[in-house]
Design a protein around this nucleic acid. Structure first.
Lengths: 221, 221
DNA sequence: TAGGTTTGCGGACGGACGTTCGATATGCCG
DNA sequence: CGGCATATCGAACGTCCGTCCGCAAACCTA
């Protein structure tokens, strides 16, 4: 019984892993079930024994990935109270996970809108749990309202999640270095020691230098 | 002659603007030419008078958007030498433009891989011009090699480009505030004044706490 | 070995898509 | 007024896609 169950599970997980790679390479909508059939060696119709629709396949990948990311994080943060330390652990978990599971994380970051209805809602629930954990930590670190917490939170996640657009494992600096650099940039700033200059830097802003793209004096927004 | 030319241009640009909105809402591959025909009021085949293929339509949108963004930036930076000021202008231009042209910028950020061949190459060329301008500025600000310039550059762009995933014009803080907050976070850091704590925060890292998603001791990466 | 459940497949169906073609209207120039 | 370039359209073509159905192995159990 245990063996049968685990044989099924192993094959499902192998399909999910392969499908994640294909979705990452070609994009969810571009990739066809036939592509996945070819890559897994399972026949087109045979795949439907393991999921009920293409969208459910995407959901299974995203839910599994985010679930693991989240439970790893909660295990790590357990018992740790100091907010800087909690932030460091959050970023470390996120970035390590991202780089160890590039395909899944790219699918998670890039195909968020491909899910609809209940599938979408369930993944978004987990997403909200993560962002609210982060936002709480950030508000402990900087309780004064001089920086918008939502902006700060998504600035941090943007910094990290953008990884899939540029990171190449064979050419870039190792993970530990990325964690260190991003943590330092976000917490200490990229150029923290020039206290006098930023004031200068803010004079003469572009003002309305960004009208619509299409007409030089466009009436957008 | 000038009038005919400009009538053609106006219609083309109106089509591009509508198409950008639809691509932003539904995604490039999900959106059909029929959707664009419906939204513009032009017939399906009539659209092909203005472009030769769906991919060229996407290219025209991206190229126009990035072109404007880039020329705005170069005009702004002209004659400004102080690197902090240049960085501030770059971020201000980027964020203002992003928020004033959400649809186009979402298409630019999210549909980068939808272009192929020469279309892809031409947009990437402009993209590279922007990132290299940014990287040069950052290296002037922090010449020491203690933070990887590539990581810093893409951390900054990730922070900004991630906007399209969370920003809601009606609920969020105004643009000027977003520019200020992001500039401060990136340059000064989110929590710059706790010099002692970060050292503590780095003890006991998760180590190999991020194996593959799928197996607890997986052989990924 | 008989019977039932699990696992797998080939082939088809209906629909949506990008693109093309030939025809028509419109407006300008001679 | 005749003719050419511009602008627009309806209808169709060929292809690919997600999904479903019916049938056959394979395998466990009794």
């Amino acid at each position: 019984m245990t063996d049968e169950r685990s044989a099924y599970d192993e094959k499902l997980e192998s399909i999910l892993r392969t499908a994640a790679q294909i979705f990452a390479e070609k994009g969810y909508h571009q990739a066809s079930i036939r592509d996945i059939a070819r890559a897994t060696g399972v026949s087109l119709s045979g795949l439907y024994y393991y999921f009920n629709s293409k969208e459910e396949l995407l959901f299974l990948i995203q839910d599994h990935a985010f679930g693991t990311l989240l439970s790893n994080l909660e295990r790590l943060l357990d018992g740790v109270a100091e907010p800087h330390r909690r932030l460091r652990l959050l970023m470390e978990n996120h970035l390590r996970y991202f780089i160890a599971n590039t395909a899944e994380m790219k699918v998670l970051s890039h195909e968020a809108e491909a899910l609809t209805g209940d599938f979408r809602r369930r993944v978004n629930g987990k997403k909200r749990r993560l962002t609210e954990t982060a936002m709480q930590i950030l508000q402990e670190i900087r309780p004064a309202g001089d920086v918008d917490p939502r902006v700060a939170t998504f600035a941090m996640f943007g910094m990290m999640n953008w990884l899939y657009n540029w990171h190449r494992a064979d050419r870039d600096v190792p993970v530990e270095r990325i964690v260190d650099d991003m943590y330092r940039i976000f917490v200490e700033g990229f150029a923290p020691d020039n206290a006098a200059v930023p004031a200068l830097a803010r004079e003469a802003s572009p003002g309305d230098a960004a009208p619509s793209i299409w007409r030089s004096g466009g009436a957008d927004e």
